[in-house]
């Protein structure tokens, strides 16, 4: 799979959370246009290992755009220049021969760097956990027609549930705000009958946890929506605001 791209990579290298990091420059050559961005890093890492150097640490898992693990900030954009794709689905044909590519980790106080391009996103897990449980009946599944759901609501809930929790919204936001993520998680349940029982409690608890984790507030710039690989809409943020304020003001 010999290719024709010769690239200069400026990659953020950081030993661990406590040590200061810096950019290192690497040359890679013969990169195929059909490679994914992560495969290109694999090529570099194979060479680094052969040369006895420390390979570049980066997160990845499914490599098909659904797990939300890959998280590179490429040339100033989370998941690189293309719309609606994660880093693993970004292909090298999106770059030109001789280009210099700058690769940084997600930068946010709430996402501390573990090593190189790997950041700790467990703050997202704690926001989800703060949402708590959903009350459903146990036993056999009831007939689907027992709970009629308008198609529009189902579609909207599903669109919100498409969030893979990668953190690109936080990375793109000038305030490192997690509003798009949290609002998607609030919305996917608020829109469905199954989510009604804990609805008010959930919105308040998740917002409180989001603040606790040290994410910023929202300036409504829309950068999160533009960079989200799953196209999550900022209409969800408006919905979360409605959920939160109505919960706060109506609570006894």
């Amino acid at each position: 799979m010999e290719g024709n791209l010769n690239l200069t990579l400026k990659i953020w290298r950081q030993k661990n959370a406590n040590e200061a990091g810096k950019f290192e420059t690497y040359q890679v050559s013969g990169i195929s246009e059909d490679m994914s961005f992560l495969e290109m890093i694999d090529v570099l890492n194979n060479r680094l290992i052969e040369e006895g150097d420390d390979p570049v640490a980066f997160d990845h898992d499914c490599r098909e755009g659904i797990c939300g693990m890959c998280s590179m900030y490429i040339n100033g954009s989370p998941h690189g220049p293309n719309k609606g794709v994660t880093t693993c689905q970004l292909h090298m044909r999106s770059f030109s021969n001789g280009e210099t590519i700058t690769i940084e980790p997600w930068r946010a106080g709430a996402f501390p760097v573990i090593k190189d391009l790997v950041v700790n996103r467990s703050s997202f897990d704690r926001i989800i956990a703060a949402g708590g449980f959903v009350s459903v009946n146990t036993g056999n599944a009831q007939d689907a027609n027992n709970i009629p759901i308008p198609k529009e609501d189902a579609d909207e809930a599903f669109a919100a549930a498409a969030c893979i929790g990668c953190g690109a919204c936080v990375a793109a936001c000038k305030n490192a705000s997690a509003m798009l993520f949290t609002s998607a998680k609030v919305s996917q349940l608020a829109l469905l009958p199954q989510g009604q029982v804990e609805r008010a409690k959930r919105a308040q608890a998740m917002v409180a946890q989001m603040d606790e984790e040290g994410f910023g507030a929202c300036t409504n710039t829309g950068a999160c929506e533009a960079e989200c690989p799953k196209g999550i809409s900022i209409e969800n943020i408006a919905r979360m605001n409605r959920e939160y304020f109505s919960a706060v003001f109506a609570a006894k």
Partner: peptide
């Protein structure tokens, strides 16, 4: 407050 949420700035 928002500024303080990203202690290390992006290069690009």
């Amino acid at each position: 407050e928002n500024k303080s949420k990203r202690p290390v700035a992006y290069a690009v």
